[in-house]
Design a protein around this nucleic acid. Sequence first.
DNA 1: GCTCCATGTATAGAAAACTTAACATGGCAA
DNA 2: TTGCCATGTTAAGTTTTCTATACATGGAGC
Lengths: 74, 74
Amino acid sequence: MGKPTKITNSIRALRFAHGEMTQAELAERIGVTRQTVIAIEHGRYSPSLEMAFQIARVFGVPLDDVFQYPATEN
Amino acid sequence: MGKPTKITNSIRALRFAHGEMTQAELAERIGVTRQTVIAIEHGRYSPSLEMAFQIARVFGVPLDDVFQYPATEN
DNA sequence: GCTCCATGTATAGAAAACTTAACATGGCAA
DNA sequence: TTGCCATGTTAAGTTTTCTATACATGGAGC
């Protein structure tokens, strides 16, 4: 359904860098479901800005360390 | 409709700092409608991550210079 | 073998973001 | 005054994001 997003992310790497945090644990920390974390991690769709900020905050890094927006795709 | 977002932004200031750019012009540059720009600027809802990246790119500043996420509201 | 546990898929539906179109207002210039 | 332009509002509809539930798989340990 969701169109695949242009935005890539480093969530999986960040989870492992933070004590092998599981998807379920990350989901609980940011207040969403596990399915949402999986979908975001796989780039099936891009998260809301609010969710993006929360994820970055969990890992204690700036937003740009979690999500990368490729230069002008058009 | 949209619930008022916790995220604040500096879009209006950035527009004026960039040659009095109008809402219509910004909208066209990021590929959305004028109404969407107005809604975002007024904080009626938060944009998608993709849109946020595009806005930051138009102004040539990092994402955190455009949007501010307040520390843990809960 | 069996049972957890982390990960993944699928589907239906709710909620939020975004569009389209119409109309209103105040300012400014001809 | 008339006309244009930037801003703003409203309402209805579409698309995307997110939830809830259910089920599948492979690895680790008993």
